[in-house]
Amino acid sequence: MTDLAPSIRPGRRAVAWGVATAVGVFSLFGLVTGLVPNPLYVRMVPRTPTDYLLLALTALLAGAYVTQRLAAASREDADGRLDGDGADRWAVGGLIGGFLAVGCPVCNAVLLALFSSSALMTYFDPLRPLLGALSVALLAGLIAVRRRRSCPTCEP
């Protein structure tokens, strides 16, 4: 296995922001969705191991994406293709999907305003793991594509 080329090795600043992002996403999503028990929010749908797995993967991939993004931004990219490809919008979409996947469908005011609680429990709740898997795949795919673009000669 080859070592990362010095030009794509993230600096301490990028790694620190990536770790802060991962911890922040885990904490925020966990508290707001009730996966992290707290006195301010009571979750109406039981917690499952899949919810915790999707929360952890979403947080880790968000941190990895931010680390990679900042490392790429610190390098000079004359044509702007690494940072100007719209990947940030896809990353935000992956985060939103991850949030909806781990959240309580009955407790989500936006979903509840659009659909009834019985419709959410019947149709949306069984699809949450699939939505989470798609979100994780989207974030992982973005990281892989950006890595390949930043270093075409590196091994995967």
Rank of each mutant, 00 (worst) to 15 (best):
P6N: 00
P6C: 00
S7D: 08
I8R: 04
R9L: 00
R9P: 00
P10T: 00
G11A: 00
G11W: 01
R12Y: 00
A14V: 01
A14Y: 03
A16R: 08
A16L: 10
W17L: 05
G18P: 00
V19K: 12
V19P: 02
A20T: 11
A20G: 15
A20I: 10
A20N: 12
T21I: 11
T21P: 03
A22E: 04
V23M: 10
V23G: 06
V25E: 01
V25N: 04
V25G: 09
V25D: 04
V25H: 12
F26C: 03
F26L: 11
S27F: 15
S27I: 15
L28A: 15
L28G: 13
F29V: 09
F29G: 05
T33E: 05
T33Q: 05
T33Y: 08
G34M: 12
L35A: 07
L35D: 03
L35E: 02
V36H: 13
V36A: 15
V36T: 15
P39E: 08
P39D: 01
P39K: 05
L40I: 15
Y41K: 14
Y41C: 04
M44G: 08
V45F: 02
R47G: 03
R47K: 11
R47F: 02
T48C: 07
T50D: 05
L53S: 08
A56G: 09
A56Y: 08
L57S: 13
A59R: 06
L60S: 11
L61P: 02
A62D: 06
A62W: 09
G63H: 06
G63K: 07
G63R: 06
A64P: 01
Y65A: 14
Y65E: 07
T67Q: 11
R69I: 00
R69K: 09
L70V: 03
L70M: 10
L70S: 04
A71W: 01
A71N: 05
A72I: 03
A72P: 01
A73W: 07
A73L: 12
A73T: 05
R75K: 03
R75F: 01
E76Y: 08
E76L: 07
D77W: 07
D77I: 09
D77H: 09
A78W: 09
A78Q: 12
D79P: 02
D79H: 12
G80M: 05
G80L: 06
R81Y: 09
R81A: 06
L82Q: 09
L82F: 08
L82W: 11
D85C: 10
D88K: 13
D88T: 14
R89M: 05
W90C: 09
W90T: 08
W90Q: 09
A91H: 11
A91M: 14
